[in-house]
Simulated scan of single mutants.
Amino acid sequence: MIDPFGRTINYLRLSVTDRCDLRCTYCMPERMRFLPKAEVLSLDELDRVASAFVRLGVRKLRLTGGEPLVRRDMLYLVERLSRHLASGVLDELTMTTNGHRLAEFAAPLAAAGVKRINVSLDHLEPATYARITRGGDVARVIVGIDAALAAGIAIKLNAVALRDDNADHLVTLAEWAHARGADLSVIEVMPLGSVEADRRDQYLPLTEVRARFAERWTLTDLARSTGGPARYVRTNEGGTIGFITPLTHNFCGGCNRVRLTCTGQLFLCLGDDADADLRTPLRANRDDRLLDAAILAAIERKPERHAFDHRVAKPAVARHMSHTGG
């Protein structure tokens, strides 16, 4: 699959639910309205549409949400999709999770072929974590991370840089991750959906974050790529830190991904409203000719780049990250 700008699209982020057991202040309002369950694709439908993408050239598949591990019978979908790993047509099946339920699922995920998981973790101090997530329990997340590591799953922490909440804590978070053999990526807050806070106040450019890391370590730029937008550095103590900078350094030129929601809505860019309905062709007949054609037609409309701007109060798009798929 080649988009209009010559980029090969080989990475699908598949949201299995828009629901989440947390309400992070930068992600959604406290009283979030989730999609009606009747609109959500079944697990077999999600398997079918993901398999269509794999057939058309996707080599990396990430399961997201919302929080993917709150979806009932989630392991069934993982086990179904793992057949593409066994056949060799899929290189990697991964997941992004808040970690709250990871302890329960770590071993079976590893058994199904999941070798790498991203865990969203913005702070280690219990009260601060609970405030940012509106009720989350960081101790549960730490137990989940340790369970995943024990199961042989590589862990990368994702931390959203928040000026008033964790600017002074990110070095500590990196040290904690590296001590466990995990990596850390830091992400600029993205203007997706309305939240109670003003994201202009939350915004912390990663140039400032990198400067803080440079006070603690000597940083060496790496050519490493995991198929995502992060730029990586290695510390003189051997730990790896990634910087994801949608606002201070646009990375769209190398975009290789699309996002599919749990309702079958394909978003071609995280920061653009360009989309395609895949649920209708998916349900139109039993073979995948219409589905394949809809996917290929959508890729031909992929925008060149997003238009995020941290100086503007209004979100770049109205939908929340939990709906789009993280």
Rank of each mutant, 00 (worst) to 15 (best):
L85Q: 02
V58S: 10
D73C: 01
E79A: 10
A111L: 09
G66Q: 07
M32Q: 14
G57F: 15
L35H: 03
A106K: 02
V143G: 03
A112D: 01
E104K: 13
L46C: 15
L93D: 02
A103C: 07
H84D: 13
G136Q: 10
G65K: 10
A86Q: 15
L85S: 01
I145R: 10
D122L: 01
V58Y: 08
S87Q: 07
A127C: 00
D137W: 03
V58R: 09
E125P: 01
L69M: 07
L61I: 04
V119W: 12
R71P: 14
P108V: 08
L46A: 08
G99L: 08
A127N: 00
L85V: 03
A86F: 02
G66D: 09
T128A: 15
G135M: 06
A110Y: 00
M95P: 05
V70K: 11
H100G: 06
H123S: 08
E45D: 14
T64C: 13
K60A: 09
I117D: 01
R72W: 02
R31T: 06
D73I: 02
S82M: 13
R62L: 09
A38G: 06
L43V: 12
R31F: 05
R59P: 09
L93T: 00
A111V: 00
N118E: 06
V143F: 02
V141Q: 05
R101I: 02
L102W: 09
V141D: 05
F53A: 15
M74E: 09
L46T: 06
A52E: 12
I142L: 14
P36T: 01
V70W: 04
R140L: 14
E39S: 11
L63T: 11
N118T: 08
L77G: 04
F105I: 00
T96Q: 11
Y76N: 03
L102P: 12
A103H: 10
A127W: 00
R59M: 04
A52N: 13
M32R: 15
R59T: 11
K37Y: 10
T64P: 12
S42K: 04
M32C: 13
L109M: 14
V49E: 01
L90E: 03
L121A: 08
A106E: 01
R131D: 13
D44W: 03
M74P: 02
N118D: 07
